[in-house]
């Protein structure tokens, strides 16, 4: 039998990615994601490695920016590419539940 993920696992991933998938895609991903997982299992052949992580191949140390203001956009310009707006605001269909705060 072909190895595959469960429907729920794939639906969970599709929801994380916020991509709507149909039955056909669902079936395809059940197999594909499993294949990929098997493929990357190859890294487990490597057993001796250093603990240091290469997050980005740069020798740069993070240079800090001075706290002085630069140019900003006019609200009109900020909204230029917005599909929906209302006055100076971006607009989306109502979000029910939480009020938008950073403490998520």
């Amino acid at each position: 039998m072909e190895e595959k993920l469960t429907r729920e696992e794939v639906l969970h991933v599709a929801n994380l990615a916020r991509i709507e998938i149909d039955e056909e895609e669902l079936a395809m991903y059940q197999v594909k994601l499993k294949q990929i997982l098997n493929e990357i299992e190859k890294i487990n052949e490597v057993t001796s490695y250093d603990e240091g992580m290469l997050i980005c191949p740069t020798e740069n140390k993070c240079k800090l920016r001075e706290d002085t203001a630069g140019e900003m956009l006019e609200p009109r310009e900020a909204l230029k590419n917005a599909p929906r707006s209302s006055g100076n605001y971006f607009s989306v269909p109502v979000v029910i539940g939480e009020t938008g705060e950073a403490s998520a």
């Binding site: 109502v94 979000v95 950073a102």
Partner: peptide
């Protein structure tokens, strides 16, 4: 970083960045 501020107005949510 902080998020933007949202205000609920009728059937819309307005966003201020």
């Amino acid at each position: 970083e902080d998020t933007c501020k949202s205000t609920h107005r009728g059937d819309k949510t307005l966003l201020d960045f």
